[in-house]
Amino acid sequence: MSAEPVRTVAFGVNGETREATIPVRRTLGDVLRHDFGLTGTHLGCEHGVCGACTVLLDGRAVRACLMLAVQAEGHEIRTVEGLADAAGALHPLQQAFCDHHGLQCGFCTPGMLTTLVEFLADCPDPTAAQVRVAISGNLCRCTGYESIVAAVLDAAARMRAA
């Protein structure tokens, strides 16, 4: 194999334009973590099944392990680091996860949160059954999901009242 093919890409990450010259085979998840130091996005299975690496691409939840970073060119990515407000106050979902013990080891949490940010934008007043469907692509091996569902319902109520 001759030299590793590289490409310079620029895309938005949590409101800032970031640029990097990277091997074209590097996934979006790897670039976020290794090139941009945003280790909040977790890589679990790296083949699209566990949901831990889920980020928002132009507002839509996608797997960061199933996108090449070069495909993000010109798009806007939002990661778990971009959920809290500028002053550092947690997003209502993050606060509800904290209040309801919606996490234990925390590995699945970034993917849960990004998936649910999209879900609550589409469905602000969900039933518990709808929440379970929404997170059916995110594996959690600690909580048994009960506390996560409780957190989402509480966050939804808080966000509707805000």
């Binding site: 699209g48 939840a61 996608v62 797997r63 999209e118 692509g137």
Partner: peptide, 9 residues
């Protein structure tokens, strides 16, 4: 078809 984030891509 799989889950939401897969259907988005």
């Amino acid at each position: 078809i799989a889950h939401g984030p897969i259907r988005a891509r």
